[in-house]
């Protein structure tokens, strides 16, 4: 396929991909999906949260994990940015700090896939910015 320049090109590419694999289940099962929130306030962005979020979005898809990646505000852990909150189905949210690409990879492989806690957890008595006010 040549360069994608317009919406028509975009749709054409979609249709090509669809033809290849239309069996893929896209509907998200709320019982069974992982929620990932990347803290994206000034502190997070400055510490590299954009790359971390891109990594999670890309790798969840590549490793075939059902999940939703969203962004959240500052949780007050600026010293530990980038921070990521992971909620496994039926479990309490866990916040990891100092998340670089290596730790993000461990989070997916160890915590998300196997439920095994890894280094870098920020203790639980926090509130997200959304739960305040």
């Amino acid at each position: 396929m040549s360069q994608i320049k317009s919406l028509a090109d975009l749709r054409k590419k979609r249709e090509e991909i669809k033809a290849e694999m239309d069996t893929r289940i896209k509907a998200i099962d709320p019982e069974n999906h992982v929620q990932i929130k990347v803290a994206m306030a000034t502190c997070g962005i400055a510490a590299g949260a954009k790359e971390i979020m891109e990594f999670f979005v890309e790798q969840l898809d590549r490793r075939n994990i059902q999940g939703v990646v969203t962004q959240t505000g500052c949780m007050g852990y600026c010293y530990a940015e980038p921070t990521v909150e992971i909620t496994l189905p039926g479990r309490e949210p866990v916040v990891y700090g100092f998340v670089d690409l290596k730790r993000a990879d461990q989070i997916i492989e160890k915590y998300i896939k196997e439920g095994e806690l890894i280094d870098g957890i920020i203790p639980v008595n926090y509130e997200t910015i959304d739960s305040k006010e």
């Binding site: 360069q3 994608i4 320049k5 317009s6 975009l10 979609r14 979005v57 590549r62």
Partner: peptide, 16 residues
């Protein structure tokens, strides 16, 4: 949520 679509959108924007 479709990652390949995001990649394509990025490419489209960058090309333009």
């Amino acid at each position: 949520s479709d990652v390949s679509l995001l990649t394509d959108i990025r490419e489209m924007m960058n090309n333009n």
